[in-house]
Design a protein around this nucleic acid. Structure first.
Length: 290
DNA sequence: AATCCGTGGAA
DNA sequence: TTTCCAAGGAT
């Protein structure tokens, strides 16, 4: 069990002062933060988020930038396709929504790069709406505190959202704050590796504690390899273009990875994704930068 | 439903 | 050193 008053009091006392949580932060700021935070730690997002907010304070400003500028400004946050999708989303918001980030889940879901989590995170954190916001932190907290399991099993959007829905306070404002608090609990206390149960505000009612801290017995999630994968090669290739002021010739890219077959395949996939372009002269460049 | 898509810090 | 994993989404 995760009582609302207990969790909210703890959040009042210990919540991190993150820039996208401040009252003056716009819905656009919240949306940008949520995209950047997908699979990416807060510490790496913060500086880039500040740069983006200063440079592109509204969706139409980002929409006016070239794709290459956006990919370059994304830097090394990882998963750079997120940058292109955010750019697309900004264009759609500017054109179809009067430059105002939508406040309802279904409209948000229709935007590129916005899925079940991000749509509800924006609705809750930018607009104070009551809706289940389920990320990996929340799934882990619910698995332990509510179901008494050692960890979350495989995700099931429908079931996971129903679990959280049942926990949410009745009013919009309390529910939105509760959603942020659940995530904070998972991020700071109920962590994946070594949970800090001694500091947990819901220790006394945690189903996992009451059950004697049983070990997780569900299916083991396979950890993704990185070394030697196309992901690494794509990262290397894109990093060459990011580090260059303009279009580069083939030999410079060839130096980034020795396996020619894999290198060519990755180069092609980057072209398909629109993360890079080929100039008329046969050089390679970030999109729009030639 | 399982797999792919970057990056880097911490244990 | 290797492994784990960090506010997911698209296909």
């Amino acid at each position: 069990m995760v009582a609302a008053d207990t969790l909210l009091s703890w959040f009042d006392d210990t919540a991190r002062d993150l820039p996208w949580r401040r009252p003056e932060c716009t819905a656009w700021g919240v949306l940008v933060s949520e995209i950047m935070l997908q699979q990416t730690p807060v510490s790496r997002v913060e500086p880039i988020w500040h740069e983006w907010m200063a440079r592109w304070p509204v969706p139409s400003a980002l929409a006016a930038a070239s794709q290459g500028e956006v990919v370059r400004a994304w830097g090394k946050l990882g998963y750079p396709r997120r940058a292109l999708r955010l750019h697309e989303a900004a264009s759609a918001i500017a054109l179809k929504h009067d430059d105002v980030v939508p406040d309802d889940v279904d409209t948000l879901l229709a935007l590129p790069g916005i899925g079940a989590y991000t749509a509800r995170a924006v609705a809750a954190f930018a607009y104070g709406k009551r809706c289940p916001v389920v990320d990996t932190n929340v799934r882990r907290v619910v698995a332990r505190a509510v179901h008494g399991a050692g960890d979350a099993g495989p995700p099931s959007t429908t079931r996971d959202m129903a679990d959280v829905e049942a926990l949410l306070p009745a009013t919009d404002a309390a529910a939105a704050r509760y959603s942020a608090a659940l995530m904070e609990l998972g991020a700071l206390i109920c962590t994946a590796r070594t949970p800090r149960c001694a500091d947990c505000p819901v220790f006394d009612t945690c189903a996992w504690q009451l059950a004697g801290r049983p070990a997780y017995n569900g299916p083991v999630k396979a950890v993704q390899k990185f070394a030697g994968t196309d992901r690494q090669v794509r990262g290397r290739l894109l990093d060459v273009l990011r580090g260059a002021p303009g279009p580069v010739a083939r030999p410079l890219l060839d130096a980034a990875w020795s396996d020619a077959g894999q290198r060519d395949r990755c180069l092609d996939s980057l072209l398909v994704d629109g993360l890079i372009e080929q100039t008329d002269a046969g050089l390679f460049a970030l999109p729009g930068e030639h």
